[in-house]
């Protein structure tokens, strides 16, 4: 689905990351964790086509238009009601589809509400609907649940995960939360500004009671140790 070879992103005055290699198969769910400033968001933005690669090769099956991105902030347009936010840039005749999707995400009653009338969790669900209605083959998540409370976050993690599995999408998520990375990723990558430091295969990813399993805590401990050992 995606391959990235020796990728590097530079901003004026500083480098975001370099020597990054990644290959993701279709229907795979990959989480990336790393210390603040290691270039996680820049990596996602480069894949989404928002920032250019300074070096390296990026290949996406279906090109950048195959990607759907959910940002850290919901970025809902305050002047548009929920359903129009979901339909941003799309034809109005897909309204029924948008409403069905919103209903699936538990937002049937708020389709005509404006973003400022919604809770943080609801806003992120709308942002998720906006990404999903485009039927992206590759869903990119940039810590979209970071600002939510623990319960809402876990509920949304489960919802996204089941939607991605049900619709055979590929998922790439960056997060600073180790627990979230394990919950969401069948593969967890520890990223540094100079490439991949460590990779963990999560064999228990599909299990529903994953958060209660001993293996979950073992993986969390292992990843934490790797992150702590980073310079």
């Amino acid at each position: 689905m995606l391959s990235l070879q020796d990728a590097r992103v530079d901003y004026p005055g500083h480098m975001a990351f370099d020597h990054f290699n990644l290959s993701i198969e279709s229907r795979e769910m990959v989480s990336i964790v790393g210390k603040s400033g290691c270039g996680k968001t820049s990596l996602l933005y480069a894949i989404a086509g928002l920032v250019p690669l300074s070096q390296g090769i990026l290949r996406i099956k279906g090109g950048a238009s195959a990607c759907g991105i959910m940002f850290q902030q919901d970025r809902l347009l305050p002047w548009k009601p929920v359903v129009d936010n979901v339909l941003l840039g799309l034809r109005k005749d897909r309204k029924h589809e948008a409403e069905t999707l919103l209903e699936k995400l538990g937002l049937a009653d708020v389709t005509k509400h404006y973003p400022h009338e919604l809770s943080g969790g609801m806003r992120q669900r709308v942002a998720l609907a906006r990404a999903l209605i485009r039927k992206p083959a590759l869903l990119l998540l940039d810590e979209p649940l970071a600002s939510l409370d623990e319960r809402t976050r876990e509920r949304l993690q489960d919802e996204i995960k089941s939607y991605v599995a049900e619709h055979s999408l590929t998922l790439l998520m960056v997060t600073h939360s180790i627990a979230e990375a394990i919950t969401m990723g069948s593969r967890v990558i520890v990223m540094t500004p100079h490439g991949v430091d460590f990779e963990l295969h999560n064999a228990h990813h599909a299990e529903t009671d994953l958060r209660q399993k001993d293996e979950f805590f073992a993986m969390e401990k292992l990843l934490r140790r790797h992150l702590e050992d980073l310079p």
């Binding site: 989404a48 086509g49 928002l50 950048a64 238009s65 990607c67 991105i69 940002f71 902030q73 970025r75 347009l77 548009k80 941003l88 840039g89 906006r130 485009r134």
Partner: peptide, 20 residues
């Protein structure tokens, strides 16, 4: 952020003007 959103969702120039 809104203009980045428009770019990420491949909005045309007309839609960027009209919607944002």
């Amino acid at each position: 952020e809104y203009l980045e959103l428009a770019k990420a969702y491949h909005l045309t120039r007309t839609r960027v003007f009209k919607d944002i």
